[in-house]
């Protein structure tokens, strides 16, 4: 997907925000110790936030026997392609409810993209390589993003009351299921984890490959 499209989308959002609001809504995710937690998926839910435009397609690559990215957030209905950048076979599968599938992936063979049309978490595994774990967060709202290095995610949205959902595979169940609601006109929300994180799987850095 060309980068200009992103910028264009962003520009539209900003314009929308500026046109109606004075300030954007910023969610700060902190871990149990109060340190900023980067990479968490933050989704704002509101009936108005149904996507107007078709969702952007996404890619879940397999590089060096790891899913890349480790966590992928897409909008409901998005097409995700599963290329194989390794020179070996992978057998990607998921038994998660939103999307059960399996793909036998060969080098240089590009299967058709899969449509993730149900919101939820799709855990990805590779039947050949047990250590390979990846996640696709299928957001039902158009407003979702991942926290930056400061653990912040900012949304230019109308001043409404939003349900804020924060997710990351290292979160414990309680934190995963916890949502918070903002009041109208609230510009900041701090989401602090109440439980310790699961340890990191392998050496996998939860890097922001394309942001």
């Amino acid at each position: 997907m060309p980068k200009c499209c992103h910028y264009g989308f962003l520009l539209i959002c900003l314009l929308l925000a500026w046109s109606s609001l004075a300030e954007p809504l910023t969610i700060t995710v902190l871990n149990q110790q109060g340190e900023p937690f980067p990479g968490a998926v933050v989704e704002l839910k509101h009936p108005d936030l149904t996507p107007a435009s078709p969702p952007a397609p996404a890619v879940m690559d397999q590089v060096n026997k790891q899913f890349k990215p480790h966590v992928l957030a897409v909008q409901q209905g998005a097409h995700v392609t599963f290329p194989n950048s390794d020179s070996i076979k992978h057998h990607v599968y998921s038994f998660s409810k939103p999307k059960r599938f399996q793909l036998k992936l060969y080098k240089d063979q590009q299967p058709d993209p899969l449509v993730f049309d149900k919101p939820g978490i799709v855990a990805l595994g590779c039947n050949v390589h047990d250590w390979m774990v990846g996640y696709i967060y299928v957001a039902e709202s158009a407003a979702f993003r991942r926290t930056d290095d400061q653990g912040k995610a900012s949304f230019d949205v109308k001043p409404e009351s939003y349900e804020v959902v924060v997710w990351h595979p290292r979160f414990r169940e309680q934190d995963k299921q916890r949502s918070q609601r903002t009041s109208i006109g609230q510009t900041t929300l701090v989401f602090q984890l109440q439980e310790a994180l699961y340890p990191m799987i392998n050496d996998q850095a939860d890097e922001f490959d394309e942001y």
């Binding site: 998921s94 038994f95 998660s96 855990a123 990805l124 595994g125 047990d130 250590w131 390979m132 774990v133 169940e173 699961y198 799987i201 392998n202």
Partner: peptide, 10 residues
Amino acid sequence: KFLEQQPQVD
């Protein structure tokens, strides 16, 4: 566990 590395039990 559907994913062996996953902490949660399926």
